[in-house]
Write a protein that binds this DNA or RNA. Structure first.
Length: 412
DNA sequence: CAATTAACTCGATCCACATGCTGCG
DNA sequence: ATCGCAGCATGTGGATCGAGTTAAT
């Protein structure tokens, strides 16, 4: 994955789409994700400006750079150089927001050196939105959800509570207060204190409580034991293995990895919402079902703020291990309010065929999923890449070898 | 329907050695 | 507090093996 847009190959990549596993410039992002209703659901975020290969997780205000969790850790918590840098959560979005809306989401975007180049400005400029912008960038599913009074409080009601729609979905975008900004992100800092302090959803929760909206759903310290899943999801599985089978977990949490340390999220009942805010797992790293099942959770929920705009955000992951693959993009599936395999339930009117189709899609997705190996020391990798081998094993310098990565030749 | 076999998948293991890390003076 | 040094631990990729799973008979 490189510096340039995976689609056009010309512009600099700005956003990362997990569903497509692609880095895109803003122009292509809009083109690609406005193609159809499904692609509109893809959850995107900024691409890490350091490694250019991972979705950004935080924005370093001091350095004016968006970083994935690993780069953030390497650059901040992992060193003594700049642990005190103020950082701001980078949120995901879905749909097809306009340039203006994106700039509201990521106020720093236009100030960014990377985003400030002509190409990107051009990209943003091209993202003009027509009169009915809401329709333009709110996926049908979101609209359906919004229209479903049984699941979502009417968005306007929510707006009335807050008075200003901007407040609704921008509140968590404001820089964390100094105390929170300097949170220790060092590896292994998976303490509950960290999660509770750092995650903006806590802040959001507080606000919801203020609004009297949150009370309906309190998942503090939920133990995601097996028995709790049914409660949490409010569903009766016709086959419990659906849920605990990897397939099911994959479907629930999206196409990516979820390490046990990541799966701090508690997952509300399918399609549930709190005052118009849909819950979304803050992380969707791939996971063994076991790790998900066994993890004691912090209230690391990611609030999908689907206010009037229909734009959805998710907060940063509560991922604790820098070595894990990060994913701030939550499962768009969960967001869509429909389980991938079409769970039975009153809200699910999908025919049996679509259920099997969904299962097939997830099997395919699972097959093609790549578990990228993290290389900690590039120098060692470089050496290993050129080291001669015998049957895959390294050989002493000068010894006979049967494989030379450099020349692809055999000495014997 | 159960048992057997083949095909397939996937994780663990091995190797050498430069590099990174730690402790000590 | 800082620097240099020595010694140890680590990690890197490709091939292979074995256990487990799936499909076919």
């Amino acid at each position: 994955m490189g510096y340039h847009c995976d689609f056009c190959g010309e512009q600099r990549s700005i956003v990362y789409c997990r569903s497509d596993a692609a880095s895109l410039c803003l122009s292509c992002d809009r083109n690609v994700h406005s193609a159809n209703a499904l692609s509109r659901r893809h959850s995107r975020t900024l691409v890490c400006e350091r490694c250019n290969s991972q979705p950004a997780f935080v924005r370093c205000i001091e350095e004016k750079i968006s970083l994935c969790q690993n780069c953030d850790w390497m650059g901040h918590a992992g060193t003594n150089i700049s642990p005190a840098h103020k950082r701001q959560a980078v949120h995901c979005y879905s749909g097809c927001p306009s340039a203006a809306e994106l700039s509201e989401i990521w106020s720093f975007l236009l100030d960014s050196p990377s985003a400030g180049d002509s190409a990107c400005e051009q990209g943003m400029g091209s993202m003009s939105i027509s009169g009915n912008k809401q329709r333009d960038w709110q996926g049908p599913q979101e609209k359906n959800n919004s229209e479903d009074a049984s699941f979502l409080v009417e968005a306007d009601d929510l707006l009335n509570v807050n008075g200003d729609k901007t407040v609704v979905w921008m509140e968590s975008l404001t820089p964390l207060d100094s105390k929170l900004q300097n949170v220790d992100l060092s590896a292994g800092s998976s303490s509950s204190a960290m999660h509770k302090e750092f995650l903006p959803q806590e802040k959001g929760r507080a606000k919801c409580e203020d609004d009297g909206l949150y009370g309906a759903f309190n998942v503090d310290e939920v133990d995601l034991g097996i028995e709790n899943y049914e409660e949490l999801f409010g569903i009766a599985l016709d086959n419990p293995e659906q849920l605990f089978d990897n397939e099911g977990i994959d479907g629930l949490f999206g196409p990516n990895d979820m390490s046990s340390s990541d799966c701090q999220g508690a997952y509300p009942p399918e399609g549930s919402s709190v005052g118009g805010m849909k819950m979304q797992p803050a992380c969707s790293n791939a996971a063994s079902a076991d790790s998900v099942i066994s993890c004691k959770t912090e209230p690391n929920l990611c609030f999908m703020r689907q206010a009037h705009s229909g734009l959805s955000f998710s907060g940063p992951t509560g991922e604790s291990s820098a070595g894990d693959y990060q994913d701030c993009g939550a499962s768009s599936m969960l967001n869509m309010g429909e389980p991938p395999w079409g769970l039975p339930g009153p809200e699910s009117s999908a025919p049996p065929s679509s259920r099997s189709d969904a299962v097939m899609r997830y099997r395919e997705k699972k097959k093609t999923r790549k578990f990228e190996k993290r290389v900690r020391y590039a120098t060692r990798k470089a050496r290993a890449d050129v080291r001669r081998r015998v049957k895959g094993r390294f050989v002493r310098a000068g010894d006979a070898y049967d494989y030379d990565p450099l020349s692809e030749s055999r000495s014997c």
